[in-house]
């Protein structure tokens, strides 16, 4: 009996001592932290994708709580809803952001840009990019090894086996920008998301001069500037032999796509054009699978 009592007493005494030590240590080393950080972190999606620019959701929550205003801070994954909730929690104002979506700007399908070489090196775009121009011969076009697909945490990107190009599933894309960083050639771009996932963009980033670009790829932008002339909203700029449509200025009128002689301007998820038999909008629509709505 004594043994049991002695044991219980010893253990209780040790436990009490340890509790006291822990209590005083935690008091002594207590770090003052804004309790709102935890609250904000709870509201964030927890993807830790780095799309906001911070190292992860916790770091972004600290940034949000520490900042004076919400300007320039936005979680692309959570979008407006999450930002509004956080603003309400922190008692601040937030402006509605522009939702974005990733867009792959290359039309180098197997027909437009047939393979001239066979690449059997490591299956990484970054490696292929450092070694050579790519099997299709375009120094700016998609290499097709899928670094962007591997970078996407949300399953929004997949390789189309038929075209050899990545396809964006706009419904899953959170515009975190991981694919933009992963692409060694800067082909993926974050563009404004329009209602119904409509999108119109120059699907080429080649800086080659028109004749060279066209020889390599049938759907290359040759920098002719026709689209720029047709655009009434000054949304199109021409630089380094390639046109670029500013999605924040674009009004989706589609005049530029009609004017493009190489069909390098691609329109997605639009209803079929009414009577345009000779303009062949179907040709533009078949290059690459349209985004799913």
């Amino acid at each position: 009996m004594n043994t049991i009592l002695f044991t219980v007493a010893t253990l209780t005494f040790t436990g009490l001592c340890a509790a006291l030590i822990l209590y005083f240590t935690s008091r002594r080393f207590f770090v003052e932290e804004d309790s709102r950080i935890d609250g904000v972190q709870e509201m964030l999606p927890g993807a830790n994708c780095g799309g906001c620019g911070a190292a992860g959701c916790r770091a972004f929550a600290e940034q949000l709580v520490g900042a004076d205003s919400m300007d320039g801070l936005r979680c692309p994954v959570g979008g407006d809803e999450v930002m509004k909730n956080i603003a309400a929690y922190l008692g601040r104002e937030v402006q509605a952001g522009v939702p974005q979506v990733a867009v792959v700007r290359c039309n180098g399908t197997c027909e437009n840009r047939p393979a001239r070489q066979h690449y059997d090196g490591a299956d990484r775009c970054a490696i292929a990019h450092a070694l050579f121009v790519g099997a299709g011969g375009c120094a700016y076009g998609c290499l097709g090894c899928g670094d962007c697909v591997a970078a996407c945490q949300f399953g929004a990107l997949s390789m189309d086996a038929e075209t050899g190009l990545p396809v964006v599933d706009a419904s899953r894309c959170t515009a975190c920008g991981a694919c933009v960083k992963a692409c060694p050639r800067g082909i993926v771009e974050l563009r404004k998301k329009f209602p119904g996932n409509r999108q119109i963009y120059v699907s080429c980033v080649s800086h080659d001069k028109g004749a060279v670009a066209r020889k390599i790829c049938a759907a290359a932008c040759i920098g002719c500037g026709k689209c720029q002339k047709t655009c009434t909203f000054e949304a199109i700029t021409l630089e380094n032999n390639v046109a670029w449509i500013d999605s924040t200025k674009c009004r989706l009128c589609r005049k530029c796509a009609e004017a493009c002689p190489t069909h390098s301007i691609v329109e997605r998820n639009f209803p079929a054009r009414r009577p345009a038999p000779e303009a062949k909008p179907a040709a533009a629509a078949t290059v690459g699978t349209p985004n799913q709505a």
Partner: peptide
């Protein structure tokens, strides 16, 4: 295995 391909990538 494409050992050198990956090493070159990291080395760069």
């Amino acid at each position: 295995r494409p050992l050198l391909d990956y090493i070159r990538l990291g080395k760069a």
